[in-house]
Structure formats: C-alpha cells, structure tokens
C-alpha cells in the first residue's frame, strides 16, 4: 500500500506542522510519499524529507504551481495517482480547494477531515459541526482524503528520504493568480499554535479586539475569533475558529466574550486547557471550560494581561 501526501507549501516554505501531522496519521497505511509543488518547492521538499516516516519526496517546481491554483495542482496529483492507493492532504484551505477536484477526476468520493484512521478503507470524521462522529467505509478503489491535523500528533524529525523530480502535468489554464492580501504578523500560525486567545461578539468592535490581541501577544499566542465576531466585521475570516473556519487543539485556549455556540465548540473543544471569560454566567462555553471567569472582559482581560 502506498500513500501520496500533498505537502502544504506556501510561498516556498513547507507548513511543517500540518504536513508532519498528516505523515503521522497516514504512516499506518503504508509508505508515504510527500509531494511538494510550487514555484519554489525545493527547500520545502528538503524540509519534508527530514520528517520521520517519510519514504520519499517528489518535487514539482514550476511557475504553474506557484499559487496553488486548484486546476493545475489537481491535474498534477491525478497524473501521479496511478501509483498510490491513498491520496491525502492536511485539511488546510488550499487542500479543501484541491482535493475534492482530485477525487471527482478519479471518480472517487473525497473523505474530508479524517479524524481517525480505523483501517485502509475505514475512517472517522466529524459531521454536524462535530455533534456527531461518523465512521465511513470507502468503496472507492482510490481513497482521496484530507486529514484533520488537530486530531493527530506530528511525526518527529530525523528522516532522510530521497527527493526526486515529479513529471509535471499540463496546466488546464482555467484560472490565473491576480494578487494576495496577506496580513503580516509575527504571531504563531493559528492551527499549529500552542496557545490561542479568541474573541467573540462580546468584544464589541474591531478596535476593541486590541484587548484580545494584547493578551495573545503577552502569551505568545495566536489570535482566533468566533464566527459571530467575523460576521460582525471585528476580525478577519482566517481567524475564524469553528465548523466553517479552523480547527485548533492548543495546550491553552482562552475564549473571551464567546458564548460557546456549537459551531464554535466544533473548532476548539479538543484543546487541552480551556479558559472562558464571559459576563454571562449561563453562557454554554462554561460547560466545557476548565476554568471559567464570570466578569466584564474589558476589565478582566487587561488585568490578566498585566499579571502574566
């Protein structure tokens, strides 16, 4: 059995955390080949080769893969698919864009957000905002799936897999890159951060989100937000934690002014330690928090920031 894993490469750099977690998840299924595609992918490939458990690394370095457009990336994966029984990627936004396309081209049903691998055909995945866990058995010859990284530990370092060039596939030429708006930030990346501080509707405005950011910076944490906060324009969408945003499982998750709708809990309830700060003592977030503090966030959060 052989596994092809699409490594997460952004602007020439491997997202090592997401990729290493997927390697760890997939290792029981067979030899894992990591594919690194991008305009600059050699450094990422060399990095991927050092993840323990990686059997080999394929690199597809070409301008056509520069912006992870779905069509050329999917065409590349499909051209390589013949050698593999499982084709996977960590559940990042890019992978969610590409992998269903790959699956349909292979006439297979994609298996999204796999949270546990039971055997080569059988997988667990959350549905209904994590209110239910489904076990599904795939009848497809090739299994195309994305891996929910928050559910797995990362594979270690110390690997030295051989790196070789993949044969490139034709670009269908259906879309082109126009531009990126990436917020420059020194903060850790949300899905791999050891600590996350999130704000909800209770924060009240975009300006007042600075209170959340200050606490996050004091803790060296990533900043998250509830869907309600994103919906209200207080925070950008890529901060969204929950069913329709990111799934995180840090050592410490601090939820501020977040009531705890099921859609939010879906994205953070596997965190090791959860702290909730909310003025409403009946807020559902307190039912899953390890430490709850009932109080006004505008006084308690700055006080907490000051005392850390």
């Amino acid at each position: 059995m052989a596994v092809l894993l699409l490594g997460e490469v952004n602007h020439g750099t491997l997202n090592r955390d997401a990729t290493a977690k997927a390697v760890h998840a997939l290792a029981p299924l067979g030899d894992v080949t990591v594919l690194c595609a991008g305009a600059h992918a050699r450094d990422a490939a060399a990095d991927a080769a050092t993840i323990a458990g990686v059997a080999r690394v394929l690199v597809a370095e070409d301008a056509r893969y520069g912006h992870r457009l779905a069509e050329p990336t999917a065409a590349l994966i499909v051209s390589l698919a013949g050698d593999y029984d499982h084709i996977a990627a960590p559940s990042t936004t890019d992978a969610k864009n590409v992998m269903p396309r790959v699956a349909a081209l292979l006439d297979a049903m994609v298996i999204p957000d796999v949270s546990r691998i039971v055997d080569a055909q059988t997988f667990e995945r959350p549905v209904y905002a994590g209110n239910a866990i489904q076990t599904v058995r795939s009848r497809d010859a090739k299994k195309v799936m994305t891996i929910r990284t928050a559910s797995f530990d990362a594979a270690g370092a110390g690997g030295s897999a051989p790196v070789s060039d993949a044969t490139l596939a034709d670009d269908p030429g259906l879309s082109s890159w126009v531009g990126d708006e990436v917020a420059a930030s020194d903060r850790p990346e949300l899905t791999s951060a050891g600590r996350v501080v999130s704000g909800g509707r209770g924060v009240g405005s975009k300006e007042q989100f600075a209170i959340i950011e200050a606490l996050a910076d004091k803790l060296g944490a990533a900043v998250g937000a509830s869907r309600a906060a994103v919906d209200s324009g207080y925070a950008p969408n890529d901060w969204q934690v929950g069913q329709t945003g990111k799934v995180v499982a840090p050592e410490l998750y601090v939820a501020v002014g977040i009531s705890g709708a099921i859609q939010h809990l879906a994205g953070m309830k596997d965190s090791k330690v959860i702290v909730a700060i909310n003025k409403d003592e009946e807020a559902p977030i307190f039912q899953i928090a390890d430490y709850g503090l009932v109080g006004d966030l505008f006084t308690t959060v700055p006080e907490l920031t000051g005392k850390l």
Partner: peptide, 14 residues
C-alpha cells in the same frame, strides 16, 4: 477574492 489561510487571494477565472 478568496478566503485562504493567512488572508485573501484574488484570482481570475475564465
């Protein structure tokens, strides 16, 4: 304009 990890990406699609 697309919501991606880390921000926004704008593409042109035929």
């Amino acid at each position: 304009t697309r919501e991606v990890d880390g921000g926004l990406q704008t593409i042109s699609v035929a």
